[in-house]
Design a protein around this nucleic acid. Sequence first.
DNA 1: CATCGATATGTAATCGATTACAATAATGAT
DNA 2: ATCATTATTGTAATCGATTACATATCGATG
Lengths: 344, 344
Amino acid sequence: MAQKTSTLQDVARVAGVSTATVSRTLSNPKMVNESTRERVAEAVRVSGYRVNRAARNLRTQRAQSVLVLLPDLANPFFSAILEGISLNLSRRGYSMLIASTKQVHDSGDRLIDYLDDARADGMIILDGGLDPAVVASLKNAPQSKPILFACEWVEDGNFPSVRSENRRGTGTAVRYLHSIGHRKIAHVTGPDGNVLMHARKDAFVAECEKLDLELKPEWIIPGDFSLRAGCLAAKTWIAFEDRPTAVFCASDLLALGFISELSRQDFKVPQDVSVMGFDDIDLAEQFIPPLTSIRQDRLLIGETAASMLLERLTTQSGEGTEHAAVVPVSLIIRESTAPPNSRP
Amino acid sequence: MAQKTSTLQDVARVAGVSTATVSRTLSNPKMVNESTRERVAEAVRVSGYRVNRAARNLRTQRAQSVLVLLPDLANPFFSAILEGISLNLSRRGYSMLIASTKQVHDSGDRLIDYLDDARADGMIILDGGLDPAVVASLKNAPQSKPILFACEWVEDGNFPSVRSENRRGTGTAVRYLHSIGHRKIAHVTGPDGNVLMHARKDAFVAECEKLDLELKPEWIIPGDFSLRAGCLAAKTWIAFEDRPTAVFCASDLLALGFISELSRQDFKVPQDVSVMGFDDIDLAEQFIPPLTSIRQDRLLIGETAASMLLERLTTQSGEGTEHAAVVPVSLIIRESTAPPNSRP
DNA sequence: CATCGATATGTAATCGATTACAATAATGAT
DNA sequence: ATCATTATTGTAATCGATTACATATCGATG
């Protein structure tokens, strides 16, 4: 039952060759003779040999794993991204380590340790809200291993990144609402200081100006991407004297919360107000009413992030590799939006 | 910038002691003299030393990491469990590796490799639907490393596990519906063959019998825990001649899908039918109407799973450690349930 | 036939930490 | 003063794979 796993030595003994030959057979088969290759393959089979990663990692100075850092494991937005990352990593024999910045915060700046202590070869960060001091420590780490931001990013540091078309998506949203007749549009923002919040808010304001839409300052309602903030924003909207006929939320969760609260107060969507979100999470389609949204291809974001990082890991210091990938978004029209006053 | 990380050797040289002493200072401080301890600590500080995990892992024959296996990263049900696992693992210096059984399936039986190739010391499985052949291979692996099932489990193999009180929770749900006046209750089940599906269905039937409730065979509606299956189940319910006044769904997603579809068809919850779920995912509270559910403490499940596994990792072969932990569930009453015919 | 190149394989150093064992000093008991 | 005991530190083997370098074999070439 609990027998030892066999080592290269064992395989070498069985096959009657040296460990070097076995190693070569496994990692670079065309270096060895056909006949020995077969003998070794057979020996590997009978002994049930599995490479010992710790030994290989020590010798090759790699970990064959990547750390993914999330702000919050409980946010469903991230799951598809993880799926994409994991898919590409495992395809190349890499493992995916997960940590959440919340916990990092709790336990000091242990973040850089993952890279420094040879547990991971690189890092994909999905949290743009990292403490600047932590970011700096990452940048100046003794061994500068590749770090890449996905979805969110930090302004300084000039890290490579994968992003969605936040500006274009926001512009598309506003133009769509405008095209079906809305002239007064509110925006519920992400959390203060968040890069996505700024990108989307700025794009929102810019598009409103371009279309020459009225935009009262209070129609920019501060939020934080969460359901709860969406509920609060709905209360704000209800309290307005002059209510916008459409609301563009910076995330789907905000939009869902917004609609929930409106329903509780007996407002109807889209009859009383059109609501749209950003992300197109799984739930958007199933909600009542199904939510109009800007879809981010989260799987693709994840896959892109993983392959960009692997690129940098395998080519020396990432010469000539793409620095910032932008993943397209698309407008998904469902039932939470309609022309204004559609129920006269 | 890209300077080498310093090794034990470097620290030893700076402190003027041997590597053995440095190692001891770090792992077992009370073995070394106060003064050398300080000297070493200082040397560690100035050289910015970080242990090389690969080296340690090779020497100690451990990976200091645990693999968590999910059926589906995209399911929000798992996120809080991961949070709990991660919390307990990182507290003890362990890393969390994530893989999904979907991908494992795609790439052959590489699952056992994680343990065999020294990447992980143990495994937490959140998927009871594993191929029996894979399960067997896990059980008979050359080095039998600890494996633990959480939430779901497999019948054979006698693996340790952490579960929620599925039976009691289901009983509570049925008794609650009965107590507010329902006499005809349907059940939307999980996927065929799933252990949770069976546990909950059996408990449902048993409780109905105990309460002497009518239960037509077609009132057991097959589903699979997903939103979509909930929608389909709603169509089934609508088609009944004799409609149950309450529906107990085996998961929250099912319940949400069920309610969504009913809304589309202009049925009102809870006026036309009471609907309840199982899990109490984040969304349940925000849905319209807020969902009555049986709450599983997912964070606690995760924490328990991690600490049970760590227990087995640190004590030799897990003598006298708990074999099956059961985590309590609780009834959360919200607005998706009400006495029947509440709108006469 | 000597020499060169290509091919195939073996020998042994190496990665960086841990730890068994040995060595030494310090302390106390007799 | 002697021996046992404890406390502290050093020496070197070890974990298991990779790989630089050395060696051996074979055929072809001039």
